[in-house]
Design a protein around this nucleic acid. Sequence first.
DNA 1: CCTTTGATAAGAATAATTCTTATTTAAGAA
DNA 2: TTCTTAAATAAGAATTATTCTTATCAAAGG
Lengths: 162, 162
Amino acid sequence: MTVSKGELDRRLSEFRHRLSQAGIKVTHQRLEIFRELAQSAEHPDAETIFEAVRRRVPTISLDTVYRTLWLFVDLGVLHTLGPPRDRMRFDANVAPHHHFVCVQCGATHDFFCEECDAFRVPDEVRAMGSVHIKQMEVRGVCVKCQKASSKKIRASRKKEET
Amino acid sequence: MTVSKGELDRRLSEFRHRLSQAGIKVTHQRLEIFRELAQSAEHPDAETIFEAVRRRVPTISLDTVYRTLWLFVDLGVLHTLGPPRDRMRFDANVAPHHHFVCVQCGATHDFFCEECDAFRVPDEVRAMGSVHIKQMEVRGVCVKCQKASSKKIRASRKKEET
DNA sequence: CCTTTGATAAGAATAATTCTTATTTAAGAA
DNA sequence: TTCTTAAATAAGAATTATTCTTATCAAAGG
């Protein structure tokens, strides 16, 4: 599946705008990495993006791809799928339930929700494959990480005052 | 958050039953690894499980924990969170949308769904942290992997016939 | 209480991701 | 346009999660 020309252009100009606003250089590598992701409706991993971009920018390094992807995530122009930045997580609760996932530390909390349980998977989605389970995933920053980062901010403010 | 004694016992007896049915040995290590996961409503990674079980089974190895967890996943007594078994995946579509995730190859397809978009996150969940996005995650086996595995089965049948 | 086959421990190997450092380049100033 | 400089990149080393290899060990049935 590919994104339309118009949609791609919109995403690219939005992208340039965001980088400038944040005072971040618009490099050839960054543009091509973003273009590669923005023109695809799939969800490639870093290696796949690296291989694709390398065809156009032969000297690019895998490290740049990783660094750039995480930069984009921090800027909010990308998301990651599933729990973040670390290792596989396991869940012994095979009954229907739903998840709040912290995008910073990966902590995941169950919740129950009849409205979500009642969701009937559309035929369009059934055509993608056999359905095992369906669950609502709420992504955000958990209370613990919020506290931790507000502490950090306060600490760095104090530092700047001196 | 901890699971009640009754619920834990139910899960453990269900668990023993499943292993026996599948002709798989009920070892001390497997019981303790399962108990550790089943008594927790969190979603620990392998390392965390390893550290916890080690207090009770000091000679256990990290490798056994991994091997056992994947065995459990194959048996269906556990799930994993997010895309499976491999690397981080990225998504340049920050507009509201939802995912079909293949638990075998990790391929992830977008879909759109007004019913899911309309879901209002309950206060109980808001109390867990700040909410960035919410999305329905449908997990299953994609058409490609279904075809691949049916091919495999046919091939192994042919082999057995000889 | 044997036997056998599958399970485990230990450490080596692999593979994804990140770090270090020397070089290059974007972007604003002249 | 050219110069300046902080920021970005490439290359390869380092790190870390996960898996593999192989020599012991133990569950389950007889």
